[in-house]
Amino acid sequence: MSTFDTIPQTRQEALVEVLLRLADDRLILGHRLSEWAGHGPELEEDLALANIALDMIGHASALYEYAAKLDNKPDEDYFAYFRDDIDFKNIALAELPRGDFAFTIARQFLFSLFSYFLYKDLIEIVEDEQFNGMLQKHFKEIKYHLRHSREWVLRLGDGTDESKSRIQNAFDNIWMYTGEMFEIDEPFKAAIEHNLYTKVAKWQSEWRTFVNSTLTEATLTVPDYEQYMFTGARSGRHTEYLGHLLAQMQFLRRSYPDAEWK
């Protein structure tokens, strides 16, 4: 448990917590993807990565907006620009540096697949109309992100020797950051009580089966699930990378907080 963590007591507090966790994942990973703009391996792929980045930042923005309304904050920007790294609730997987194209694809595939199962499940469970509406809308785009990243895993895995070793390395290196996706801590437990989150363990084996079959099809070796797993980012124990990301993202807004920037 981190220094500031409080367990949500009410349904509304639990909802805000879930909204922020989902949004932070998407903002931070969207930020990493946006770093590709103008630097992609081919023009068509530049467009594709920017599309996914736009979707993810858009999802984050919508989730923040709803959280701001519930939590009496001025707007969606409050959460993105005026919190420090220890207040961010994203998993560490999202904040790791951009890396090469193989790393970007490996991360996107694992995260999109997780999001796919999560959203599919939440759409069935969540009673809150506004939240559910967003989930349904964003789910369509997540399906596309999954398709795009899966296709690339196959091509890089079963492409050339170089691409194979790059994507294999990417999966090996990112593996220890996948554990956080399936953690259920106290705030999530509270959210589950209110049908605002789900017991992700239900479909963890399905997630693994999908990962295994894709990696096998891509002629890759599936890393060991039972290895050391990074933990703590959801409650503010991040990697060193997040601070630098936020310093860049927030500096102008924080330098002139009273100015109009929208």
């Binding site: 081919e42 023009l43 068509e44 792929e45 467009l47 594709a48 599309n51 596309y144 398709r147 795009h148 296709e151 091509r155």
Partner: peptide
């Protein structure tokens, strides 16, 4: 038109390029 290594990627690239 778009450049793509194969039909499936051509479809994805076409979507990202011409259906934004």
């Amino acid at each position: 038109s778009v450049h793509a290594p194969d039909a499936e990627m051509a479809l994805l690239n076409a979507r990202d390029t011409y259906a934004r």
